[in-house]
Amino acid sequence: MIARLGIIAAVAFAWSAPALAAGHATAAGVASATIVSPLRVIALAPMDFGDITHVDGTSGTVTVSPGAAGAQFSGGASAACSGSVCADAHAARFSVTGEPQRNYTIQLPATIVATGTGLSTTAALPALTVNGLTVRSASSATAPHLDAAGTDHFEVGGTITLPPDLPPARYRASFTVIVSYA
């Protein structure tokens, strides 16, 4: 019986006695983050189809394309001017600034709807739709890229369809382009 008590006391001592600490250790880690400057896009010039006329009773289309001056006509549509004045038709132009050497994306609406103000009538005018929007950046046709200075430009073109018998009018529309880092 005495032997048993001795064993129990020794076991209790073994679990309660603290050993000395082994020492200190310092771990040098890091936290990191890469901050990129926000993208900024500025509209430099509107999408301009110029002054257009069309054959009575015949519809037509007018197209402005990125990277090309002037407009292309089809159907009953044609330029209402000649020479250097007609060269004013052009695609919309934008500048982009942001983090150098990074790719970005351009998001366009599927269509743009323009509303008109009659030049010789107060009657309601049909809305005109610009579709077939196309974009081309100065850096790349497929993967827009900011240069070493963090800048780039791009143009947006499209095709507007003129219904037959459209009265003289001025049409305007606004649209939103969204640029994001790729």
């Binding site: 050993a19 020492g23 040098a28 890091v30 936290a31 990129v36 400057s37």
Partner: peptide, 30 residues
């Protein structure tokens, strides 16, 4: 883990922060 609070400027930045941990064994039981 941790929280990074950022106030941006006009340019980008590559940021590195030291994360130092001092560890000590204070007791060994058993």
């Amino acid at each position: 883990g941790g929280t990074l609070n950022i106030t941006s400027g006009t340019r980008g930045a590559q940021m590195v922060f030291p994360v130092m941990l001092i560890t000590s064994v204070t007791q060994v039981l058993g």
